[in-house]
Design a protein around this nucleic acid. Sequence first.
DNA 1: TCGCCGGGTGTGAACGTGCACATCCGGCGC
DNA 2: GCGCCGGATGTGCACGTTCACACCCGGCGA
Lengths: 331, 331
Amino acid sequence: MPSIRDVARLAGVSHQTVSRVLNDHPSIRPETKQRVLDAIGVLDYRPNLAARALVTSRSNVIGVMSATIGEFGPASSIATIEEAARAEGYSVTTVNLPATTPEAIGDAVRQLVREQIAGIVVLAPQVRVFHVLRGMAIDVPFVSLQTASGATGESLAADQVEGARLATNHLIELGHRDIVHLAGPQDWIEAESRMRGYLDALRDSDLPTIPPIRGDWTADFGHFAGLELARRGDFTAVFAANDLMAIGLMHGFRDAGLDVPGHVSVVGFDDIPVAPHVWPPLTTVHQDFPELGRRAVEMLLAGIRGEETPAFGPLESQLLARASSAAPWRS
Amino acid sequence: MPSIRDVARLAGVSHQTVSRVLNDHPSIRPETKQRVLDAIGVLDYRPNLAARALVTSRSNVIGVMSATIGEFGPASSIATIEEAARAEGYSVTTVNLPATTPEAIGDAVRQLVREQIAGIVVLAPQVRVFHVLRGMAIDVPFVSLQTASGATGESLAADQVEGARLATNHLIELGHRDIVHLAGPQDWIEAESRMRGYLDALRDSDLPTIPPIRGDWTADFGHFAGLELARRGDFTAVFAANDLMAIGLMHGFRDAGLDVPGHVSVVGFDDIPVAPHVWPPLTTVHQDFPELGRRAVEMLLAGIRGEETPAFGPLESQLLARASSAAPWRS
DNA sequence: TCGCCGGGTGTGAACGTGCACATCCGGCGC
DNA sequence: GCGCCGGATGTGCACGTTCACACCCGGCGA
């Protein structure tokens, strides 16, 4: 493998001049620069990243920390993060958190820092993750996705509160008054935001609040919740915090002999690819995960380069009314 | 940050002795070793990975090349790959292929090689990917997931052919004679294997072959195919090459006024999390993606260390008969 | 007793790059 | 004509690790 000195020799300059060409140093004669570039081309020279990382003590690697890489949303964001980062000359290394205990989070961050990564994108939007991150006082720039605005560090999110409000208002406008919320796990920031949007919408319409059910994001739990809820019957609609639970929920209702949307309306959140194809097609709130990933990289790179971070407003959420929601059933 | 020399000084040995301790060199006195380990503990020393990569010209990083990180299967495998690799002291960097052109594949591989990764896991089971890989004659060990047995390089897969055969036989046993296959894209090895299993099953039962439909794995295409197929009516069952298409297919049939499984039976492949919760619950073939990821890492690390690669048989696929398949409808 | 062997340890160099500093040179103002 | 300035380039070192080799020393066979 050719080194920077081989290039220098071929171009008839010093290795330092080659280094300057590589790093876009301003004061270099165009003619010299061209000679160096030619030599680079001839030798098919590529800078050794390890050597560069050694001397600068940081690498062109971005760490992505995720708790739920298997889910559709995070996976979509990661794909774009990866693509956008690579376009800027950065590569991406992922850390999946098997558990969200403080120890696991701490280990993950330490491992990333040890690899001298340039920045971290956090896709594990749980409150405790931020506690740990703050406690570690890491000196690496980081961006977190899907967090409520106002969190520490640079944060970026689709407007979850607004999305949840849209979903709830949709049900209210259809005529529902007794709307249950199937929420996400307690610790999740997204779960809290969506619940807040739901509560806000109810309050704005002076509707009664029914205690939400805490789920775990899975379709299996949704199914279970559907069976349970069917026994209560003190509601005409459910807003589920994500599509997976919503789909499970409809399954549970069906098993209990309830028709959706005949007896009960259901609204989800995320707009996963199967949402339009299940029966009945799921009314849900669309989130632009890829765009979120793109912005995350832009923001993080600005932080890494010490530039001013671009100010993104929250990404607009969009309600997609499909067939799982309808006017309430009058007995 | 403490360096190896700081540790050496504190332990009263040379830096080389410390290096030997770190790399488990055999000839070192237990007492000396302990002194070094103590010093490491006191200083909280961690070896600098960049320096190590520089001198050994390879790093403890595994590259994962994927074309469809957004899909459930690959995403699940990646999560386990990442976990298993990290447990062995390796970290994982992912490359998402935006397109599967030879150029894009070549770029991705070059980029990985340039980062001096120790090995590659390929999750883009397309024929042309292997052409490119073979053409590049890379000297990095690699393992490919989800390929037919017999491919070059170390390959690892759930038994797709057998799974597809199970699915098709299930329909045959129910009494279906006219079974259509909604296949995956032409270039995909998985698509070919599943089609082969389907064709094998038909042949073994002396049933007529109907030309398969080529899909693109998406639910949207499945929906389209369902509408098209409904107009034909020369079949009583469909075996779809993945669950997403199967779900879209059922949607299309529903739109066309066909009942599943009343008029048409549908079987999918993969067992994604929503499969049991859609209506009707989808009969499908379960694949153990996490186990696949685990084995991939084990195999790759063996290759990296120059050990004998463990011989894994194909992972058993498992048919889950649910409600989308039933005996054919007799008019 | 001598020499050889091998376990245990130390010494110096090398990996490929960027940084700090030195050097050279032409132009410009006085 | 002299000195200064700044653009353009070169020199040497440092980063933290591993590798090749040298060294020391105790044991054992001749």
